[in-house]
Amino acid sequence: MPIDPTQVQHIAALARISLTDAETEAFTRQLSDILDQFEILQSLDTTGVSPTAHVAGLDNVLRDDEPADSLPAGDTLRNAPRRRGDFFQVRAVLDE
């Protein structure tokens, strides 16, 4: 299934990735090639087949709810690009 540059821009927006014009052009071609490979699935009858999300064969893995120490704030924030005190600093979320 071929997709067009407008669709690629839409997908990139969903994925929160900015694209240059050159990237949009290349990804339009490459993603169309990849989607072509997926066409084969439509020829396989899967009526009534249940989907598999996971293969570990485990359900409802539970543990006792016991309080325990978590990472100290200093460790949690060690890799933060911007911090203020013991907080991650982010840009304004709401318009002023």
Binding site: I11, A15, I17, L19, E23, Q30, L31, I34
Partner: peptide, 16 residues
């Protein structure tokens, strides 16, 4: 990089 972007976008498309 380019391959990571391709796969992130492919996934976003398949789930959209």
């Amino acid at each position: 990089g380019p391959e990571v972007k391709r796969r992130v976008m492919l996934g976003a498309f398949a789930l959209s």
